[in-house]
């Protein structure tokens, strides 16, 4: 193990993530995993890693890092100012840095989440085959200011980059897609109409567990439910009428009625939106959702090819 990077400031916004923990719901443990998997995987590919290596997920970036050994580092995700030794550089690239280099990453406010990966991947405890950190469950690596982050071994890799125009399509300017799942049919006509035709505002209490939608009082059905398994993107409606879209760090089970499920690729889009953003939803069929997921996968493969061929 080798100390690579020192977190000088801004540690409170950082967790280590990968693609999440499967098959642990039997113990009541959350899935976790990168909230924006596309940006996460691209960060890894840009430093020559496999797509699922442990990387840093940074929310509302306002951090300073100091490089301790020669290393190749990549930056992806939300629009940010990236300053290395007082010079500004673009995201969606990797850079080979030397000891003493100072990185400053500052969020610009339009989206919230960035990923930082290093060649070789970060070293953090693997729990049930995953490095994902879940703060609420005290699982994974808690990072503090002045901590030194480690890798299994220091390595440098060829610098790679993505065409910024190619990844612009990840920011969608359309209603987010919701499939009519779970108790959708049990909601009143009026509740469904309010949900799908009105604009919602993202609540302040939103985090990696879920995003709260405020501004529309959606009445849940009266029926009592037994707690049941919750899918990524499930939209539960508690009695206070503010729906919650359940995301990566969600509880495994819940007993509130669910009006639908956000399609998986749009969960990343929603995760990236800051509090007070406005958002609309469109009901789509399951067949449409599957076709959309396949298109997203094709697009990711094209981006992957673009990184790997150069």
């Amino acid at each position: 193990m080798q100390g690579l990077i020192e977190v000088v400031s801004g540690a409170q916004f950082i967790t280590v993530q990968d693609l999440g923990r499967n098959n642990v719901s039997q113990f009541g443990m959350s899935q976790g995993g990168a909230a924006d998997p596309l940006s996460f995987k691209l960060a890894n590919l840009l430093v020559g890693n496999t797509e699922d290596c442990a990387a840093l997920e940074v929310h509302f970036a306002a951090l300073t890092l100091r490089i301790l050994v020669p290393i190749t580092v990549s930056f992806t995700g939300a629009q940010c100012s990236l300053v290395i030794n007082k010079l500004t550089y673009p995201l969606w690239q990797s850079y080979t840095l030397k000891p003493g280099d100072i990185i400053e990453l500052k969020n610009c406010g339009h989206q919230t989440i960035n990923y930082i990966s290093i060649s070789g991947g970060f070293c953090s405890p693997s729990i049930y085959c995953s490095h994902s950190t879940i703060i609420r469950e005290q699982i994974g690596l808690k990072i503090n200011n002045n901590d030194v982050l480690f890798a299994k071994k220091s390595s440098i890799s060829r610098e790679r980059k993505l065409d910024v125009n190619a990844i612009a399509a990840r920011i969608v300017n359309r209603p987010l897609y919701v499939v009519p799942s779970y108790q959708h049919a049990n909601f009143s006509q009026r509740a469904r109409q309010l949900f799908f035709s009105n604009t919602h505002r993202i609540g302040l209490r939103s985090n990696r567990m879920g995003v709260e939608l405020t501004g529309n009082n959606i009445s849940p059905p009266k029926q009592q439910l037994y707690s049941e398994g919750i899918a990524l993107g499930a939209i539960q409606v508690p009695p206070n009428g503010n729906p919650i879209v359940l995301l990566n760090d969600r509880q495994t089970i819940g007993g509130y009625a669910k009006i639908g499920t956000l399609v998986s690729s749009d969960c990343a889009v929603l995760s990236q939106l800051p509090a007070s953003s406005e958002v609309n939803f469109k009901k789509v069929s399951f067949d449409f959702a599957k076709t959309h997921a396949i298109e997203q996968l094709k697009w990711y493969r094209e981006l992957k090819q673009q990184i790997c061929k150069k």
Binding site: N22, N23, V24, S25, Q26, Q31, Y226, S227, E228, G229, I230, A231, T252, I253
Partner: peptide, 15 residues
């Protein structure tokens, strides 16, 4: 090929 399964009361969730 199953990513997760959750039995809870009267339901089984399969991912």
């Amino acid at each position: 090929t199953l990513l997760d399964t959750i039995v809870s009361y009267n339901s089984l969730f399969i991912e």
